[in-house]
Write a protein that binds this DNA or RNA. Structure first.
Lengths: 233, 233
DNA sequence: TGCCTTGTATGTTTTAAAGCATCAAAGTTA
DNA sequence: TAACTTTGATGCTTTAAAACATACAAGGCA
């Protein structure tokens, strides 16, 4: 299923990778500070409270990043896709992880040693700046989500989450089916609602022909309408 | 009221300032890229949608950073105190401001030109790293707040906000009065609740002798109890 | 000084969403 | 293949918080 043949070369030579902008010398050195790990579906990559072991790059697969809240109720704060980096916030702030990462499907993750990141990569101001940009964007996203999740009503929150999944993972070849298959519970935890309400509201959207559901397959039939629901409830 | 005599020297020579770690040459150059502005109470420093004009440092005063949500309802995402930096997230991500900054009292703000920040400061890896750390911590804070504001009940949210104000601004000389004077509306907007509920819950806390209120003056009588309320509701 | 706006306080009603309960369907394991 | 577990679906009840309605106090300002 997974392309386990992916090597360091494929990562550093992909323009979408954060390591693409390193110079050749740095890329060569990176080889000695990187290791690859395989995860099955629904496995923890790290847990809230763990000490960061390095800078993690999701090579293949999909991952949810979530925090445990009141009574163990989880809130998904971010979704990661291939070539996305994870766990770096805690590494850079020298804190323990304040969120957990769990694979949504079989995944490949590579770990880059903190030593390389701090003593080599961050000395390259292009790399530092890219990290700064990434953190800045994510902070903007997080602040926006705070407002959405606290202020929008259920329909708006769910609509926004569906659009978020669309933007992050895109569609299957048919051009309408979301290329990510979440349980209703995960959809609920992404949208700050109970599983019952996620199920109920998805059904309503389906009956309104805004989406179509077939098991975990979600087709977005009317993205504009979804945008409107997201904005106006 | 304000110490308007504060000069660039006082900023760069204060260990709490982000510019403290620049080298002498950089500090000297900074002088030519910095300007100071004075704001009265309740004035906008920047508005959601504005293009960032530079890197802002709050020299004196207090500032709330907030986002407009559904129906104009505002959510305070951060509070700033002297020597704190503001508006840098949008500057670094090259976006328009996604939040507004308004003074809570008379304030002094200095603006550092984007040119200096991008072409000089960020070439200094110590400075870059400090920015990375700052963004990382703020992102952690933002994610935690998301969970708090969506999951905790009113009492827990308000208790957490009061503790947050305590940690940020500390106490007056009496050791119990919060050194920040917010309207009930601002307290509500910080805690994701209506003004009525902020007033009601503050009254309840006062009747429980957890705090004491005298107009906008809030005394924290039992911080431990407040911690417990914040955790358990 | 009194008027008027704004902020604070508190009681009442309404409502969105959580919490429960039940059942069906789909997966998983023995 | 049957027994069991998990996930999805839907109806009903409860509840936390918003919305609304006054009322009162304080601070500006004419």
């Amino acid at each position: 299923m997974l392309n386990s043949e992916l090597g360091v070369k494929d990562i550093v030579d992909n323009p979408k990778s954060i390591f693409y902008l390193l110079n050749q010398e740095e890329k060569d050195e990176l080889q000695h500070h990187i290791s690859l790990a395989h995860y099955k579906k629904n496995e923890f990559i790290f847990k809230e409270g763990d000490k960061p072991t390095g800078f993690l790059l999701l090579v293949d697969g999909k991952v949810k990043i979530f925090k445990e809240g009141v009574g163990g109720r989880e809130q998904i704060v971010r979704m990661a896709k291939p070539l996305g980096v994870i766990g770096y916030r805690a590494l850079f702030s020298d804190e323990i992880h304040n969120s957990s990462a769990v694979t949504l499907e079989e995944s490949l993750v590579c770990t880059i040693s903190p030593d390389f990141i701090f003593n080599r990569a961050l000395k390259n101001s292009d790399f530092s700046f890219k990290i700064i940009r990434k953190l800045s964007k994510e902070l903007g996203f997080s602040n926006s989500r705070t407002v959405t999740l606290t202020q929008k009503h259920i329909r708006g929150r769910l609509a926004e989450s569906l659009l978020l999944l669309k933007d992050k993972y895109g569609f299957e070849h048919d051009g309408t089916t979301l290329r990510v298959y979440l349980s209703r519970e995960d959809i609920a935890n992404l949208s700050n609602m109970t599983t019952s309400n996620a199920i109920r509201t998805l059904s309503t959207f389906a009956s309104e022909k805004v989406i179509a559901i077939d098991g975990r397959k979600i087709k977005i039939l009317d993205a504009n309408r979804l945008e409107r629901v997201s904005k106006l409830g």
